[in-house]
Design a protein around this nucleic acid. Sequence first.
DNA 1: CGAGGCATGTAACGAGTTACATGATTGC
DNA 2: GCAATCATGTAACTCGTTACATGCCTCG
Lengths: 182, 182
Amino acid sequence: MEGQIVERKLLLLGMLRMQDMHGYQLNEMIDSHIQAGFALKKPTMYKLLNAMVEDGWLTCATHKEGNYPTRRVYSLTAAGELAFMKLLRDSLSAYSPIEYQGNVSLLFMNALPEDERMALLHRRREIVKSLQHAMHPLPAISNPHDLVQLHQIRHLETELAWLDEVIASVSEERIHLELSQF
Amino acid sequence: MEGQIVERKLLLLGMLRMQDMHGYQLNEMIDSHIQAGFALKKPTMYKLLNAMVEDGWLTCATHKEGNYPTRRVYSLTAAGELAFMKLLRDSLSAYSPIEYQGNVSLLFMNALPEDERMALLHRRREIVKSLQHAMHPLPAISNPHDLVQLHQIRHLETELAWLDEVIASVSEERIHLELSQF
DNA sequence: CGAGGCATGTAACGAGTTACATGATTGC
DNA sequence: GCAATCATGTAACTCGTTACATGCCTCG
């Protein structure tokens, strides 16, 4: 099982551990927190839920309430609780560096005339800026969710600061590229 | 065309723009820079190269030199040069926030006893530390590749600083989790 | 003569997304 | 009567990776 899947199963298990829920409910809660970096589309989620039922981590019971469509409400089993704890331990103690794809263009930016290069870098900077403004600042850290938010905030700050370093070094014309350096 | 593919085509185009090369050569150069965050496996690369030949961005000529196996040496066409410039402009001026998956576990860390939670976070911290030490510091920024390296360095610093914030807030027991907060 | 490098791939698999299918109910 | 919401999926497609195929050459 790969890292992406583990994290996603952990997310579902962790939510169901707090409260039994059906798929639609889980999906809505996750979607309302995309800003924090959680992405999980419906078909993927349903597939994971069914896989975890297969594995005996979850049980599912169909519930009919009022005029709503029939719901499949999932609950953690004892095995699911054990799996949750294992995934949590593995995940909390692990780190793999971010693989950021946006920087290939930096390698070749000298192919552009200096003024255009500068303009494009400033445009990138504006995007980071606007993303930063879109995040409402945290008054204090009071729950784990805040820590995740803080993570985003800190990395956006870093991105901006780094971009300023890039812009500075470009404007001082300190940068030259030869093939030998790649 | 999605972001990942664009970046990878840009990387290949940019390298071929500096010098005609065959696949094996490209692959070796890219592999020797995985540390900088460039990952591109052989089959993927060959597929992209062939796709770009199809698109008329590259031409390929077979070369036989000495006793080496026959090589397919790729060169940029005029269309390839135009494509390179377009991808470069798009890519340099764009930014999409990093999607980091390692933080789901943070949401649920209260499920663990405090001492174990602390131990696991410290283990994560050690991994970041060791990654940081594995990067040799930059004496100065003299080429675009240094900027990419600097990007990694800065984000590792940020990761470490954030982890210290996490550890601090955990040890002060400021963090509590209810479902309503998710 | 066998292991490993050079060189270019193919095939099978896995994981995720988009678009679509289904079907009942509620609001305009 | 038509769109939107609730609810659970399936099917087709894309993208990438791993493992394997091929064949020649070099080195020990």
